[in-house]
Simulated scan of single mutants.
Amino acid sequence: MFTGLIQAMGRLSHSGIGQLTLHYPTPTHPLLADMALGDSMAVDGICLTVETLLPQGFVAAVSPETLARTTLGQLPEGSWVNLESSLRVGGKIGGHFVTGHVDGRGHLETASQADNAWILSFTVPDARAARYIVPKGSIAINGISLTVADCSPSGDWFSVAVIPVTYQETTLPHLQPGQAVNLEGDILGKYVEKLLRGHSSQASNPMDDTLSLAFLAEHGY
């Protein structure tokens, strides 16, 4: 579990078939001092496991499924990636709950500066990700916890407003129009969706008619 608050940026190298090596900018970064074998690390929003510790980084294995669903298989050697260590019990949750399990990919459409924020818009051709994008909902873009400012009814387009510190301390300035990004919707929406599917299939039984759209709206969902 992660929060979407990026702790560092690293550089990516392909160390072998199904393996990635992440290098930190400095050998004294706090993430390195606290890292152990088997730890979970979010790399551009993708939960990976630390398999080998290096003096200035770590090596992680990547499955074919992860390469197919995320951007990792497309990133060239030396690309910058966002890094976040897993949330610890009692730790601060400044963003939102992020699992590191990417729903799908989107593509940067435009990026422009407006007053004290950057406005980024994205297209989302992947319906698996688009279905969880709602106005003012939480979205993780390459592991960065952000809020949807506006979106189309289907979720196949959305925009976010990014404050300067988030823009400067993550890989967002490196994105180019058309470039793919990893998207993960809010986990709350996924559970609500599953409960509603179960409700629909059980609607013929009055005893099971306890969850509805009206019920969710009444209780603040």
Rank of each mutant, 00 (worst) to 15 (best):
I141Q: 06
Y167P: 08
A149D: 08
S159P: 06
G143H: 10
Y132W: 15
P173T: 08
T166F: 06
A149H: 00
A161E: 15
H174Y: 04
V165F: 13
K136E: 14
A180Y: 14
R131S: 09
L172C: 01
A149F: 00
P164K: 04
S145P: 05
P135L: 05
V148C: 12
W157A: 13
Y132D: 14
V162A: 13
I139S: 08
P173H: 02
S159I: 09
V165K: 12
V165N: 12
A180V: 13
Q176V: 14
S138G: 02
S145L: 03
A129K: 01
G178S: 09
L172G: 02
G137D: 09
R131V: 14
T147A: 11
P153E: 04
V181C: 03
V134C: 04
Y167V: 04
V134Y: 06
Q176D: 03
T171I: 12
P135V: 03
W157K: 13
V148R: 07
L172A: 02
L172P: 01
F158A: 08
A161P: 10
I144S: 05
P173L: 04
V160K: 05
Y132Q: 10
S154N: 15
E169F: 14
P173D: 09
S159D: 13
V160R: 05
S159W: 06
N142T: 05
I133S: 05
L172H: 07
D150Q: 15
A180L: 15
R131Q: 13
V148N: 07
N142H: 07
P153Q: 06
N142S: 15
V160Q: 11
L172V: 04
K136N: 15
A149I: 00
V162R: 09
G143P: 03
V134L: 13
S159N: 13
I141Y: 01
G178F: 02
I141A: 05
A130F: 01
S159H: 12
A140Q: 10
V162T: 12
Y132N: 10
I144C: 08
T171A: 12
G155V: 09
S152I: 00
A149L: 01
L175H: 09
A161L: 14
L172K: 03
W157D: 01
I141V: 15
T166Y: 03
T147L: 05
D156K: 00
A140K: 04
Q176C: 07
V165G: 00
G137N: 11
T170E: 06
V181T: 00
V148G: 13
I139W: 09
P164T: 08
P164E: 07
K136W: 12
H174S: 12
F158P: 08
S154M: 09
P135H: 12
R131F: 02
F158E: 11
I144Y: 07
V165E: 15
I139Q: 06
I139V: 15
A180F: 14
G178M: 08
D156V: 02
T166D: 08
W157P: 01
R131N: 00
P153F: 10
R131K: 14
S152W: 05
P153R: 00
E169G: 00
T170G: 03
G178A: 08
S154R: 14
R131P: 06
S145T: 03
Q168E: 15
L172F: 05
L172M: 03
N182D: 04
I141D: 00
A129L: 09
Y167M: 13
H174T: 14
I141M: 00
I133A: 06
